[in-house]
């Protein structure tokens, strides 16, 4: 049983007069509760594929189905609501809202989902504790280190219990030691919460921790199926 199915996805970007194919005929199945890494050199289409799965971009051709829901058929509002409910996203640059505290940043997706305040508070405190930032709840992002910011971003991506968490090069802006800690944390949270994680990364540490590895090159899938299955 697959969590997400990607059927014959193609995406082309216009670069001035030039049309650059970013993805060509990608078909893939993502399994639930697995750590999947999309890897490949720069320009291989990792981030584009991640954006399509996240529903923040639409393919020119093909279809994506996540948890039984075809994204193609959704209106912009419906797709946005789908993201709010079912998708978590971890950015390379953390992308925390600078005017909100760590607590408020983590709480934000719950507010979007109109979660009741009591439940919201309980869940945020739980996640703050899980990422080891219980004592930093009131800190603004500019008062946190890179690793701490990424922990907040991870907590924000998981707080509403999405079926799928997407992470775009989550360790790219961290030193190797912090990167390793972040990977370990995500692995642990993924195990506890039984959520599927999909990364785009060429960080060997991330690749090493993958259940499934998907290789991309010049917008093409190098292997028709993930080259390594979970142990």
């Amino acid at each position: 049983m697959s969590l997400a199915q990607l059927h014959h996805l193609s995406k082309t970007y216009a670069l001035g007069q030039l049309r650059v194919p970013a993805l060509t005929n990608i078909s893939l199945q993502l399994k639930p509760a697995c750590f999947t890494v999309l890897s490949g050199p720069s320009g291989s289409g990792k981030t584009t594929l991640l954006n399509l799965i996240a529903g923040i971009d639409r393919p020119d051709q093909g279809n994506i189905e996540i948890a039984g829901q075809s994204l193609q058929r959704l209106s912009d509002n419906a797709l946005t609501d789908f993201r709010a409910r079912h998708i978590g996203y971890i950015f390379q640059n953390f992308n925390l809202l600078p005017v909100l505290s760590a607590y408020e940043n983590i709480e934000y997706p719950l507010r979007l989902n109109k979660t009741p305040p009591v439940k919201r508070r309980q869940r945020v405190l739980e996640l703050l504790d899980a990422v080891g930032l219980a004592d930093k709840a009131s800190h603004r992002p500019n008062q946190l280190s890179g690793g701490q910011r990424q922990r907040v971003a991870i907590a924000r991506a998981l707080v509403h219990q999405p079926v799928l968490v997407l992470a775009d090069e989550p360790t790219a802006n961290l030193d190797s030691q912090t990167g390793a800690q972040i990977i370990a944390l995500m692995r642990e949270l993924q195990r506890v919460q039984q959520t599927a994680f999909v990364f785009s990364s060429h960080d060997p540490q991330v690749i090493a921790s993958a259940d499934h590895l998907v290789l991309l090159k010049d917008g093409h899938l190098l292997t028709p199926e993930p080259i390594r299955e979970a142990v």
Partner: peptide
């Protein structure tokens, strides 16, 4: 970028 982030998190255009 913040607008992009909010939209990714699930905030509608409205």
């Amino acid at each position: 970028v913040e607008i992009g982030t909010l939209r990714t998190l699930g905030l509608r255009r409205s």
